[in-house]
Amino acid sequence: MERPKYIASLSFGKDSLAAILLAKEHGEPLDEAVYCEVMFDENISGEVPEHRDFIYNTAIPRLERMGVRIVVLRSQQTYVGLFTGRVTRGPKKGMVRSFPLCGKCAVQRDCKIRPIERYRKTLPVGTVSYVGIAQDEQERLLRLEGGQQVSLLAKYNFTEQDAWQLCEKAGLLSPVYAFTDRGGCWFCPNAKREELRHLYDHHPDLWARMLELQAIPGKVTEKFNRTQKFSDIDAMFRQEDSDAAPQQAA
Rank of each mutant, 00 (worst) to 15 (best):
R197H: 11
H198G: 04
I70S: 11
R52C: 01
L152W: 05
K104H: 13
V220Q: 06
G146S: 05
E2I: 00
Y119A: 06
D53C: 00
D136F: 07
K169N: 14
L123I: 01
M66D: 13
A59Q: 09
S98A: 15
Q108H: 14
H202S: 09
L213P: 06
G67T: 07
G147Q: 13
D232W: 06
L21Y: 04
R120P: 00
D241M: 04
A215V: 03
K14C: 04
Y35F: 15
I20H: 09
R97V: 01
N57C: 07
A23R: 09
V38R: 06
Y130N: 06
K223I: 00
P100K: 10
L166I: 10
E50R: 03
G184Q: 09
Y6M: 02
R97N: 15
F54V: 02
D110R: 11
L123F: 01
C188H: 05
R97F: 10
F12D: 10
L101V: 12
R52N: 13
Y119D: 06
A18W: 05
H203D: 06
R209S: 08
A154E: 15
R197P: 00
Y79I: 04
K92Q: 15
R182T: 13
R74I: 01
A178D: 12
Q135F: 11
G146E: 09
Q228M: 12
F158E: 09
